[in-house]
Amino acid sequence: MTELAETTNGTDTAVAATVPLTLRVNGKDHDTAVEPRELLVDVIRERLGLTGTNVGCETTSCGACTVLLDDRSVKSCTVLAVQAQGREITTIEGLADGNTLHPVQAAFQRCHGLQCGFCTPGMVMASVSLIDEGRATDEKSVRAALKGNLCRCTGYHNIVAAVLSAADEMEADK
């Protein structure tokens, strides 16, 4: 059993004890130190400087903070950084191969699946995961599988088209 950290409860005496933590993000190990209460998204953004992952709500609803944890989409606002130790994290910055966009990114551009771009990193990561899980079989399934990601700009029409298009392309390339 490991006691990773002891900090005092109560907001008035928040002398925060940090614990060392190694996070594996986009194939690279990052040594850092966190308070156990720190959320994965905050550590990714503020300590690792990977600001592509966005925060759009406080209630695990909007999906802007979606990253892959061992290849499955999760909302990084609802994972403690310490819970991610020993796991493989992929963020939007880790998706493209150099200057070549990932097929899902390329499909979002081709289909105009983004406008302001704030929800986009989360939307793309969620899409990568749902395609990987075989959920991109038809429009209805894609819509159901994207319900954890909110967008105000696109009305979702072109996002759904982009996911189906990317899935087709990735299937053809197999």
Binding site: M1, E3, L4, A5, T7, G10, P36, R37, E58
Partner: peptide, 21 residues
């Protein structure tokens, strides 16, 4: 928003989890 501070344990067995409880 970040939760209030807490003490964190990560047991590796059910037995350890029960003794912490």
């Amino acid at each position: 928003m970040t939760p209030a501070p807490f003490t964190y344990y990560r047991p590796t067995s059910v037995a350890d989890a029960i003794s912490l409880l």
